[in-house]
């Protein structure tokens, strides 16, 4: 494992922990999209179908369990916790799941490395992860005033994507035959979706202001 991959995993982990911390300690999920969180839970559930059958390393297994556990507990908090669920901006978070899930499923059935159930589910999870942030970005645009923790959450997720691209570049040059178009293209699309957010995040950081997104 190279330093970019490790740093990417750590920022991914940090993003989830920031979100759980916000929800657990402040008992608020204001500005957080339940749609995005449900999509991430679906992404991890589909991607880690091999969690008990394909052992890569203890690190991988533990991280998979953390991502599965944290994504489902965030969804649980937002849906069922008697205090947290009241802070959920239901009327603003109107993005429809199936607009993202169905095209990703069709694409995974058409474009995959091998037409088996596990492989198609794995490919579907990659496509879905690429666009799962969209409901969150739409919600940020609508509410515009973003608290620090929500801003940091999206920033850390974007950093994780950027670091994974560096990891692929590194692996391409250091490992023979490391060519994975599906992973790369969906990863690149995902990272590009953050570009706009990053621009405003940088501006607010530079001017030492609270993050405001334009309408």
């Amino acid at each position: 494992m190279n330093i970019f991959r490790l740093a990417g995993d750590m920022t991914h982990l940090a993003s989830v922990l920031v979100l759980l911390l916000k929800i657990h300690t402040i008992k608020s999920c204001a500005g957080v999209s339940l749609k995005t969180q449900e999509l991430y839970a679906l992404v991890f559930a589909c991607r880690y179908l091999d969690i008990f059958t394909n052992f890569v390393s203890l690190y991988n297994t533990v991280m998979k369990l953390i991502f599965l556990g944290s994504s489902f507990s965030i969804v649980w908090y937002m849906r069922y916790h008697k205090v947290v669920r009241r802070s959920y901006d239901k009327d603003q978070d109107t993005f429809r799941h199936y607009f993202l899930v169905l095209p990703c499923l069709v694409l995974a059935l058409l474009i995959n490395e091998k037409f088996t159930f596990k492989e198609v589910m794995w490919t579907f999870s990659l496509y879905l992860e690429a666009v799962a942030i969209l409901p969150q970005l739409v919600l940020l645009q609508r509410t515009r005033n973003i608290d620090n923790l929500t801003g940091q959450y999206v920033f850390l997720l974007g950093a994780y994507r950027g670091l994974y691209i560096l990891n692929w570049i590194y692996r391409y040059f250091t490992e023979p035959h490391f060519v994975h178009w599906i992973t790369w293209i969906s990863g690149l699309v995902q990272t590009l979706l953050y570009a706009d957010f990053f621009y405003y995040y940088y501006q607010s950081w530079k001017n030492n202001q609270k993050l405001h997104l334009p309408a």
Partner: peptide, 10 residues
Amino acid sequence: CYKESPKDEL
């Protein structure tokens, strides 16, 4: 080799 597959990533 499995180690080179992207499935060793998260």
